[in-house]
Amino acid sequence: MPLYNKFANVSKTKKTVFIALLISMALVLSYFERFIPLPTYPGVKLGLANAITLTALYFLNFRETLSLVIIRIVMNAMFVGNFISFWYSLSGGLLSFFIMFLCVTIMGKQISTVGISVAGAFAHNIGQLFVVAFITKSIGVALTFLPMLSISALITGLIIGFTVKMLIPYIVRNVFRNEH
């Protein structure tokens, strides 16, 4: 159940347009995030597209958000990615989505956007390390990257969390303004 469930009854057309807008924003964000300089540690990235998944969780149900995540990852791979980056994003994106969904479902209003975002960013990195462990066939190799990635997840998760916190009231005011 999405947190803003009063929007569950908006027209199908409006919902479809909203999902399409979120997907296109996620694609643009994934494309432009590569131009933001970051420490070149394997796997460290801002994860701006995660902000879209997080936003979607507040307004859409499980099925709608899941399809949004899968569509944005497949389309992103078609535009810019390669074979490995596709598996990275799929594994990270799905795990991150499931963990954030669990956080929202179990803790609801007991947790803020920032906490969900940090958990999601961490889950994203764990998902990527699964791919590393799978391809190198060694858990030890994947573990050597974990501490640094966790710290990066804490920082990027915090940034994304605060961004979404500010974004949600804006969407409530502007995108769904006729619904209440």
Binding site: Q110, I111, S112, G115, V118, A119, L146
Partner: peptide, 15 residues
């Protein structure tokens, strides 16, 4: 909120 800190704490402990 409190749960946010718990999540951040768990991640820090794992790391």
């Amino acid at each position: 909120k409190k749960n946010d800190w718990i999540i951040a704490g768990i991640i820090a402990i794992i790391a």
